[in-house]
Amino acid sequence: MKEYVCIICPRGCHLAVDEENDYAVTGNGCLRGAAYGREEAMHPTRIVTSSVRVRSRIHPRCPVKTDKAIAKSDIMKAMLLLDDVELSPPVRRGDVVIASLFGGEANFIATRDIDE
């Protein structure tokens, strides 16, 4: 049995997910909560955001994010990859900073423009 606090809405239902029993969810106040609980128990994922070095006079760092959620267990590994990145202006929102994280579909992309 795994326990979670539902984040779908501010109510914060305490969910219990039974892995032994086909990830059945109890404690949920609505169907969306059940789906959230199941997802969290089976393969939790997160969007990761950070900022990376950029050779700019004005902006020492450029914010980035993963364009898709990645496995929760990969977050710290993904962060370490950013240590080696240094962008050069111009940077455009959406520019891929690191492609295909861990061979998957998610990329780190820039989230702002940096012109100079």
């Binding site: 900022s51 990376v52 070095r53 760092r61 950013l82 240590d83 990145v85």
Partner: peptide, 8 residues
């Protein structure tokens, strides 16, 4: 400040 980000 104790250092810079993205520095191991």
């Amino acid at each position: 400040l104790i250092g810079r980000t993205k520095d191991p």
